[in-house]
């Protein structure tokens, strides 16, 4: 099976507590230039900024590839909610004729991802995923599968979040350039990590994560080596996941070492940050993401 690797990472994120207004931390000019972003939502600007950084980090010139050979997959939960809520208030108080025509298309949550395709000519496909918390990790898994199926030669997987009125989340976006290993060799790029496997499952209330034992064992047992792991979770599922990891490691006779703090503040971007940190630190391991409802995704990186 074709190995799919990550050759570039790009990250923009709010680091101070989110007390200021949405977007106050982000200056688009250095990444997006002076023009062309005024009518884009903040979530779209963040995503374009992260894409710019990832493409540069990968040494990729998208113009050098046929447009139908490059795909885009993006995960998000709240990217469209701020503008959706703003438009709803206008519709209720003033009527549709008062909606800004330039802003109207942004009610659709797939516009951030679509804007990458428009800017970079990546037209193999464009997919937006929206499972709570895990959509970012899913974007990496989905692009990996699509590249192996030859639906694209390479592409960008990412996640983006913009703070809505009713939830104190941190904003940001994170993107990865992904390609098959033979493409990396052809263009003499550097493979920073290999997507060794992963899955997205659900653990219904009362299941106690039992359903995850076998898939997790298969994932961490691939190499037989010790594994470092990070968790991005929403709610109390975090401690149960931790326990599951340790039990699985004990049963398999390997050591699992946790990296970093649990960080679900960036929602679907959170597990992507863990991936980026592992890649930057050269500590390739496992990243888990989980939602309070019971969505759980896992992704294993190797060198």
């Amino acid at each position: 099976m074709t190995a799919v690797v990550i050759t570039g990472s790009g990250l923009v994120r709010e680091t101070a507590p989110p007390d200021a207004g949405p977007g106050a931390w982000f200056d688009p000019v250095p990444l997006l230039g002076r023009r062309g972003w005024k009518y884009l939502t903040l979530a779209t600007r963040y995503l374009l900024g992260a894409t710019h950084l990832a493409v540069n980090d990968a040494g990729l010139d998208p113009a050098g590839f046929p447009d139908e050979s490059m795909g885009v997959v993006v995960g998000t939960n709240f990217a469209a909610l701020p503008v959706f809520s703003r438009i709803t208030r206008i519709v209720v108080s003033e009527g549709p004729e008062m909606i800004s025509p330039a802003e109207a298309p942004n009610f659709s949550v797939n516009i951030p991802a679509s804007t990458i395709s428009m800017r970079y000519g990546m037209r193999a496909f464009n997919i937006t995923l929206t499972n709570p918390m895990v959509a970012g990790l899913e974007s990496v898994l989905t692009l990996s599968m699509a590249i192996r199926q030859r639906r694209a030669r390479l592409g960008v997987a990412g996640a983006t979040e913009e703070r809505p009125d009713n939830r104190r989340i941190y904003e940001g976006a994170c993107c990865f350039v992904m390609e098959p290993v033979d493409e990396v060799t052809r263009r003499e790029a550097v493979a920073k990590a290999t997507v060794a496997g992963g899955w997205c499952r659900f653990s219904p209330p009362g299941n106690g994560l039992r359903a995850l034992r076998d898939p997790l064992s298969r994932l961490i047992g691939q190499s037989g080596d010790d594994v470092c792991y990070a968790v991005a979770a929403d709610g109390d599922i975090d401690s149960r996941l931790d326990e599951l990891c340790q039990q699985t490691a004990d049963r398999m006779g390997i050591r699992m070492r946790r990296m970093g703090e649990v960080d679900g503040r960036y929602v679907s971007v959170s597990p992507m940050l863990h991936l980026a940190e592992q890649i930057a630190a050269g500590q390739h391991g496992l990243v888990l993401a989980a939602s309070g409802h019971g969505h759980v995704a896992a992704l294993r990186l190797t060198r």
Binding site: V109, N110, N126, I127, T128, L129, T130, N131, A135, E138, T142, W199, C200, R201, F202, S203, P204, N207, A211, L212, H295
Partner: peptide, 9 residues
């Protein structure tokens, strides 16, 4: 408990 995904294209 199987693979679960939500698509919003």
């Amino acid at each position: 408990t199987g693979p679960t995904t939500s698509i919003s294209t």
